[in-house]
Design a protein around this nucleic acid. Structure first.
Length: 516
RNA sequence: GGGCUUGUAGCUCAGCUAGGCAGAGCAAUCGGCUCUUAACCGAUUGGCCAGGGGUUCGAAUCCCCUCAAGCCCGCCA
């Protein structure tokens, strides 16, 4: 059984209605690793629906969290915003309402492409509109209990006058600099490092924020969360999940939600992703170089508790190939391979929206990698595909759009991630080169032959061999010569396929020019 | 120190939440006209499923122990 079904079944044992929660702080570019939380939850959400349950899927944007430090991608002057909630810091590009929105909007945009449509809740809103007030009051009534729980479980020593609430300074706007002096419902008198002294009324929304270890359990209760996955780092002993379980039971009187711990996605050769260390692949980048179903596929086919090593170089081609293979098997075009499990389910869960009712037209990614480098414009690419009969004349609009979209992804990949070994450029002028006599001889012979043969990969390939043999030139020399003339380099894509994709007249003229 | 995960072919990994013949891809070897790169085709080779114990008619799969590796343990996915 697929893991999403296993989890869904366990949830259904407890009831039919569920609230699945996810939460990612938009304090920087959201990377593919972060995406795992949302895609994992979406898979469970869809499995629940299929089984007739009534799940609700929510995403909480922690935009009331403060800026923790000056991340490497931020300009120096952002230093002054450290400690201020990210929804109250100006946007880094100036086009969004706030710092948080800058990252949040593009994240939500990615979600849409992935077919993930949770109810979005902004932490800043539920703080400001007072939804949290009751929880804040309860937390402040149980200071000692909460302190005990956190100190016992996390082995962390909290300061003497610690309270489970960070007051926001009304003067400097920071929530990290204030020290509480006296709490007497409903007011907290505080002193801020900026010099300001004042009083906050917790009945007023947005007067401050619960620290993470209390915020999380308070939220479970407030929103009725029954399932929420989290990363392995939070699952550790003494971590927020463990203190949260106890706090939610003993302070907020609510059962902790079910969960699954998900592992990190590692970048090949670089290890775990950290936006702050520059070793992250953002979800926008990923969605620019693959279709969304492939990103879903990557997450869905792996058990959440297994780490994924993702290779954005050659590995991406294999991933897309594998997806295409699953698709062929799903539609019965290819036999299932022994040992492959849950193929149908994985394919279904990989679809952002509807499952296609017939197999989409497939052109291998690797092949597109070659064609896209031959022609930049879609209409030219289409011409090649038609001429080489890789797509039928009567191709449907939807299918055409699909392939066109893939070429866009391939272009992006070539630009930013493809290994140099795979890149080439058709020179629009004959490269400056001096051919040896035997090279000229072979090209002349080719010109004669290529005129008359069928313009197809195998025929071209065979002709190249035949002529090399007749002229007694090493095959290597022939290939190298062709690449030099067409690409200005010594190596290139498989010659037969490659040349057949080029315009015949272009090739003939170029060859003639080369031996003039 | 604590926790989680992993260990299956030369390499990368499926198969473990259904206990029932050990599986793919790549590499290698051979063949397809002498085949250049990650868009070829067919065949062949290749495994004490980390090691030990237990449960079972039957274990890669479930349980226990040992060893090794990776990651996490202020915030972080």
């Amino acid at each position: 059984m697929h893991w999403a079904d296993v989890i869904a079944n366990n949830l259904i044992k407890k009831g039919n209605k569920h609230v699945l929660a996810t939460g990612i702080t938009p304090s920087g570019p959201i990377h593919v690793g972060n995406m795992r939380e949302v895609i994992t939850t979406d898979a469970i959400y869809k499995a629940l629906i299929e089984k007739g349950a009534e799940p609700e899927f929510i995403y909480i944007a922690d935009d009331y969290d403060h800026l923790r430090k000056l991340y490497p991608f931020l300009p120096d002057f952002f230093k002054k915003y450290i400690g201020i909630p990210i929804c109250e810091i100006p946007c880094i590009c100036g086009k969004h309402e706030s710092y948080a929105d800058h990252y949040l909007i593009s994240f939500l945009d990615s979600l849409k492409k992935l077919g993930i449509t949770p109810k979005v809740i902004r932490a800043s809103e539920i703080y400001k509109n007072g939804n949290y007030n009751h929880s804040i009051q309860i937390a402040l009534e149980n200071v000692e209990k909460i302190k005990d729980i956190i100190e016992n479980i996390s082995k962390r020593k909290l300061p003497k006058n610690w309270i489970p609430f960070n007051v926001k300074c009304i003067n400097c706007g920071k929530i990290t600099e204030t020290k509480p002096i006296l709490y007497e419902f409903p007011n907290i008198e505080y002193k801020c490092n900026c010099g300001y002294e004042g009083s906050a009324d917790i009945r007023e929304g947005g007067s401050g924020k619960l620290p993470w270890r209390i915020d999380w359990p308070a939220r479970w209760k407030m929103l009725g969360v029954t399932f929420e996955p989290f990363g392995k780092d939070l699952g550790t002993v003494g971590g927020a999940r463990q203190t949260g379980e106890k706090i939610v039971k003993e302070i907020f009187n609510y059962s902790p939600p079910d969960y699954t711990v998900y592992e990190f996605i590692l970048l090949k050769g670089k290890g775990a992703m950290h936006s702050s260390k520059g070793t992250a692949l953002s979800s926008e980048e990923m969605l620019a170089m693959t279709p969304p179903e492939v990103l879903r596929f990557l997450i869905v086919k792996n058990q959440p508790n297994k780490h994924i090593v993702f290779d954005p170089g050659f590995g991406l081609l294999n991933l897309v190939d594998e997806y295409d293979q699953f698709e062929r098997i799903f539609f019965g075009k290819e036999d299932i391979i022994k040992g492959m499990k849950d193929i149908e389910k994985i394919y279904e869960l990989s679809q952002p929206y509807k499952i296609p009712n017939k197999i989409p037209f497939q052109i291998p990614y690797r092949h597109l990698v070659t064609i896209v480098q031959i022609s930049k414009e879609w209409k030219d690419i289409k011409k090649i595909l038609l001429r080489t009969k890789q797509i039928p004349e009567n191709i449907g609009k939807f299918e055409e759009k699909n392939i066109k979209q893939r070429t866009k992804h391939v272009e992006y990949w070539l630009k930013f991630f493809a290994p140099n070994k795979l890149k080439f450029e058709i020179k629009n002028k004959l490269p400056n080169l001096k051919l040896l006599e035997k090279q000229k001889k072979i090209i002349n012979a080719l010109i004669d032959k290529l005129n008359s043969i069928e313009w197809d990969p195998n025929a071209i390939h065979k002709e190249i061999y035949a002529i090399s043999e007749i002229e007694n030139v090493s095959i290597k020399t022939t290939f190298t010569t062709l690449y030099q003339i067409l690409l200005g380099q010594n190596e290139g894509p498989r010659a037969g396929y490659f040349i057949s994709n080029l315009d015949r007249d272009f090739v003939m003229n170029r060859l003639k020019e080369a031996v003039k």
